[in-house]
Design a protein around this nucleic acid. Structure first.
Length: 353
DNA sequence: CGTTGGCCCTGATCGC
DNA sequence: TGCGATCAGGGCCAAC
């Protein structure tokens, strides 16, 4: 369900609450939500209890929370919301329906807190995972140690406790302008940084295969265009492939394709470079606008950490608009089944060529 | 190898 | 009111 903007809203909301918070207790209500944890529930509970969460980091739709060291290997709590996951930040008494995992936290300034991991369909998960050096030497994701592996002391200045969502969304909105320069750090240096709790250039092993997202300053545009051109598939399938570009799901794929006037099954190989550039620009545009609106909510299925909805559903041009007029040309938006999902597009503006 | 179909799951909603 | 069918924003893996 949640795509990049929704997951970023959750990350930004959680960051001030988890930074420096100690895990007082863990309750696993449904072990299926630990499908990706390499061990039984008891192992998860034991290894989480007493640890301190260092920060909240995101790449694409994956979230992770670097943990205080216990043993030689740096680790993080990894969370993926799947189709229906939520992380709700509550007080210690709060109960939420469909809570699968609960973390009770003690925060040095905010006091006792409760994180309820709620997930109707159980496609989401939590897991403890090893942090490994990133392949390109840049920061593993957004929100960890700031831009390009800068020391946490510097990066943390703009995202201290209390900064809440504003800092995160602001910083990411300008992320596209940053240049990915500098030499890749060595693995040893990255691990040293991790041990020093900066967690600059590390990523959970489960997330290592996920491509950088288009709002990541280290996203390599030229590499994306090359890999896109090498694909022999339809453009929407490519956009949904998280190993090519991450963070895009069904909603924002349909929205970006509408904006770029591309049919969902347009072949990637036949895309001109200018068209691909336009598409990437529209992807960034729609993701940033959605982030500014707090994400897309259709019902209570997606909410921020406080249970509030986002407003971007009012700004959708294509997704879910079948039967309505195309805002650009006035003809009908239609919906077709594709990849076991709905694809929404304008038959006039987005023709297969 | 890259690509693709099938599958994992539950609960809300809708139509009969 | 009851009940079955349908639908949902994602990712993984086996099979081509």
């Amino acid at each position: 369900m949640p795509e990049l903007p929704e997951v970023e809203v959750v990350r930004a909301g959680l960051a001030p609450a988890v930074r420096g918070a100690r895990v007082a207790s863990v309750t696993v209500f449904d072990a299926r939500s630990l499908r990706r944890h390499p061990g039984p529930s008891e192992d998860f509970v034991e290894r989480m209890t007493g640890r301190t969460l260092q920060s909240a980091v995101r790449r694409g739709k994956f979230l992770w929370f670097p943990l205080s060291l216990r043993g030689p290997e740096p680790e993080a709590l990894v969370a993926h919301l799947g189709m229906s996951g939520q992380v709700l930040l509550r007080d210690r008494q709060a109960d939420d329906a469909l809570t699968r995992i609960r973390l009770d936290l003690d925060h040095p300034e905010l006091g006792p807190l409760r994180l309820n991991f709620v997930d109707q369909r159980i496609f989401g998960s939590m897991a403890i995972d090893a942090l490994l050096p990133t392949a390109d030497g840049f920061s593993g994701g957004f929100g960890g140690a700031g831009l390009l592996g800068a020391p946490a002391a510097v990066a943390g200045a703009g995202a201290g406790a209390g900064a809440v969502a504003g800092a995160g969304t602001e910083a990411i909105a300008g992320a596209g302008e940053a240049e990915a320069t500098g030499e890749a750090e060595g693995a040893a240096e990255a691990l040293a940084a991790a041990a020093d709790n900066t967690f600059a250039a590390v990523i959970p092993s489960q997330v290592a295969h996920i491509a950088r997202d288009p709002l990541d300053p280290a996203f390599d545009d030229a590499l994306f265009f090359r890999r896109l051109a090498a694909r022999k598939t339809g453009i929407k399938r490519a956009l949904l492939d998280q190993t090519l570009i991450s963070g895009i799901g069904n909603i924002y794929a349909d929205e970006a394709l509408w904006a770029a006037r591309l049919h969902y099954d347009q072949s990637t190989a036949g895309l001109s470079r200018p068209r691909a550039r336009l598409l990437l620009a529209e992807i960034r545009s729609v993701l940033r606008r959605a982030l500014g609106e707090g994400g897309t909510s259709f019902d209570a299925q997606y909410v921020n950490v406080n249970g509030a909805s986002g407003y971007f559903s009012h700004s959708l041009n294509a997704y879910g608009q079948h039967g309505n007029a195309c805002p650009r040309c006035g003809r009908a938006i239609v919906r077709e089944r594709f990849m076991n999902r709905g694809s929404h597009f304008c038959v006039f503006c987005q023709r297969l060529r």
